[in-house]
Write a protein that binds this DNA or RNA. Structure first.
Lengths: 225, 225
DNA sequence: TCGTTATGATAGTTTTACTATTATATTTGA
DNA sequence: TCAAATATAATAGTAAAACTATCATAACGA
């Protein structure tokens, strides 16, 4: 039997918990599909409401605005990735091994996970690639940061950085290298697809394997004593 | 006497060349100020037209929309940085030295340059930090890329990657490491300011020097044979 | 000076990003 | 089981954003 799990998110992310009702779950599920399809800029609550057969006003009862919904989705994703890393690194004592697993989790393809029915992790990964930076690249970043909406991302960063510190306690930039790696992981996939001259990850071969090897290279070389 | 220079940009970036008229120059100069002040999302041609005492319709004669104007500004910046790198590395034969200079140019504070009057390079750097990713993180990236609007960024990437190849011809990821470094250079400054737990660059000390040291560390360690 | 071109003034359209109100359906708990 | 609370749907409305169109006038160049 597959365990029924739930990713618990900061309540500042929503007005009404979307996991608590049918409509809420539908909003989350279908917003993933629609944002991936038309892009975040063209995405509106009006379009989503038509898509799910509801109304704009109903969606506004769950999320303050579409930016908050995006933060919710991205936050869900990073929480999910952290859960997977903690699961896969369980009982592994060697920090290098743990770091390799984490790098694998952040750089390669994410498949839909039956433990979380309704939410498509694979489409969510595409949204992270294309839209995640828009969560924090906004004028009111300090204001919303105070509400704790970026806790998931920070926590993941902290976890991976802690492996680096275990490997080399003298390394001066564990958090920076982690955030750079997290960002590079989706950036390189984006560049490989759309701006290939900015990357050595080539579309012809297995882009995820190349992405993984690239990140391993820069991370483990940087950590060498 | 200070030379009068001009950054020549791809004509796909504008409808009418803003460098060719007073109004055009005003649009560019003041859009830098206004975008920095209120952020790209809140920035509109209406607001800019009031700010410069002109009309919305007049601005639309220079730029198709505000996204194109942003690409124009960011493009101008990268062309400027590449010009500076080529200037500063002139006559330096050691590729490691050249790479260090390039890293310095992309990671530290940019000061206003009297060779380009009217344009504030220092404010432009802030816009690059806060808004530059929005130039390509858009659904129509492939379409606009075909018009060559990202040529400046690609060219800079190519230049820096070529130094890496000179230093270590066996290194597998020179373009990826360059684009990662270019992105990290402004990302770390953003994180230091707004999301400090994602970075080891600390606001108390000289953030630009720390940023420079961080990039030197990951780049030169990655390039070691 | 005549014709071209740039700018300004004004008006109008569609869409977005909301807010408000009322009606109806559903749930819950006394 | 029935009343009360709550959720959702239906509808309407507003201000601003993102344009497009037209016409008058100013400036400029040959």
């Amino acid at each position: 039997m597959i365990a029924k799990l739930q990713i618990q998110l900061n309540s500042a992310l929503y007005l009404r918990d979307p996991q608590s009702s049918d409509l809420g779950q539908k909003i989350v599920q279908e917003s993933i599909v629609l944002i991936d399809k038309i892009g975040f800029e063209s995405f509106t609550f009006k379009k989503l409401s038509i898509h799910i057969g509801s109304t704009e006003a109903s969606i506004y009862r769950y999320f303050e605005n579409k930016h908050r919904l995006l933060i919710y989705l991205i936050s869900w994703y990073w929480n999910y990735i952290e859960y997977r890393i903690s699961f896969e690194t369980h009982n592994i004592s060697d920090p290098e091994e743990r770091l390799k697993i984490a790098v694998l989790m952040i750089s390669t393809k994410v498949e839909d996970d039956p433990s979380f029915p309704g939410i498509s992790e694979s489409i969510l990964q595409q949204i992270v690639i294309n839209e995640s930076d828009k969560t924090y690249l906004t004028k009111n970043v300090d204001e919303i940061n105070k509400e704790g909406v970026f806790r998931g991302y920070k926590s993941l960063c902290e976890t991976i950085a802690s492996y680096m510190i275990e490997i080399n306690p003298d390394f001066k930039f564990p958090r920076s290298l982690t955030s750079t790696s997290l960002e590079a992981a989706h950036q390189q996939l984006f560049f490989a697809e759309h701006l290939p001259r900015l990357s050595d990850v080539k579309k012809e071969k297995d882009i995820y394997e190349q992405n993984y090897q690239y990140l391993l290279t820069i991370i483990f070389n940087s950590l060498k004593k």
